[in-house]
């Protein structure tokens, strides 16, 4: 098992390096720079600024210098927020985004999981078609449409829930979490339905029925564990995706999270901020993928012996 983890981590290094390299040169290709603005800046000041942030060096040298800093865990200073480092900015935005992502994941697992299991119990009947049709709509509906729709209905028309903010008024976390989690709920519904259907057709389910167990025990005790392994394997990539994809929701609901910093950094040509967030998120994606793979393997007794003990 240790070997498997070490190998996967080693494989991640070239991936992240490629992400850094592509991002580094891509943002430089975009026209404009961090110190261009409507107001004219005195050339001497601009030159001083560029020297301070190492922008006067040849591009390749900037790149190696950045890699050197990164190796020490330093994502560099922000170009737009003077005196603050990218590390600080990420640390400030991450808790909010992580909380939002966690709630969204909870929404996705609870709603998606139960819809999928419910549908799998009576395949090819209304009980199956209705939740699956809803899931299809959930997958097709983009977040930037669902968010405003929910705001219109529950915030403005019914006046049940706040329309923006995060942690200011009670209940303001609900709409963003649902908006962000909806697409993932739909995906999880489809995954858990497929997983459950496969398991429910196994011979050992017939064995459980032949024992005279009531149907709910057959499902809960014998089918769920195997049927939900695909969902578990999906949780890691899903959470990473929720973190990385939260900027639309954060923008709609005015939430001060990582995603908004990310988008603003792109508009501002805040090179180090863009790079820093990208590196941070891609590392998270790699780690969460690995974690959910390990968890899914551990849930399967036939693979668990790789963890050193069979019990």
């Amino acid at each position: 098992m240790e070997r498997f983890i070490a190998l996967r981590l080693l494989q991640a290094i070239p991936v992240i390096l490629a992400v850094i390299t592509v991002t580094f040169f891509l943002v430089r290709v975009a026209p404009g720079g961090p110190f261009d603005s409507e107001k004219a800046v005195i050339p001497e000041v601009k030159a001083a600024l560029e020297r301070q942030y190492r922008l006067d060096l040849p591009l390749l040298q900037q790149y190696t210098a950045y890699l050197g800093d990164l190796a020490q865990g330093d994502l560099g200073p922000s170009f737009k927020y003077p005196g603050r480092s990218v590390n600080e900015l990420i640390a400030a935005g991450l808790p909010v985004t992580a909380e939002l992502g966690l709630y969204a994941l909870l929404v996705a697992v609870l709603i998606g999981g139960s819809a999928g299991i419910f549908a799998s119990l009576k395949p090819n009947t209304a009980q199956d078609y209705l939740p699956m049709a809803a899931a299809m709509i959930g997958i097709c509906m983009p977040t930037f449409l669902l968010g405003p729709l929910l705001v219109l209905v529950f915030g403005i028309h019914l006046e049940w829930l706040p329309v923006s903010g995060w942690g200011d008024i009670p209940g303001d976390k609900l709409l963003p979490s649902i908006t962000l989690g909806a697409a993932y709920a739909a995906y999880i519904a489809r995954l858990s339905r497929a997983g459950m259907l496969e398991v429910l057709n196994q011979d050992y389910i017939r064995t459980a029925r032949a024992k005279g167990l009531p149907e709910w025990q057959v499902v809960v005790k014998h089918a769920l564990r195997g049927g939900l392994i695909p969902v578990v394997a999906f949780l890691g990539p899903a959470f990473a995706g929720l973190l990385a994809g939260s900027f639309v929701v954060e923008t709609i609901f005015q939430i001060p999270g990582l995603g908004r910093f990310y988008v603003q950094a792109a508009f501002n040509r805040d090179y180090t901020m863009i790079l820093g967030t990208t590196v941070f998120l891609s590392t998270l994606i790699v780690l969460f993928n690995l974690a959910s793979d390990i968890l899914a393997a551990w849930l399967n007794p036939r693979l668990r012996h790789q963890f050193g003990s069979s019990r």
Binding site: D203, Y204, R206, T207, A210, K221, H222, G226, L299, N300
Partner: peptide, 14 residues
Amino acid sequence: MVFQDPMTCLNPYL
């Protein structure tokens, strides 16, 4: 009941 295939008739997760 006892079934044909003991490979698939026992729950692998329990």
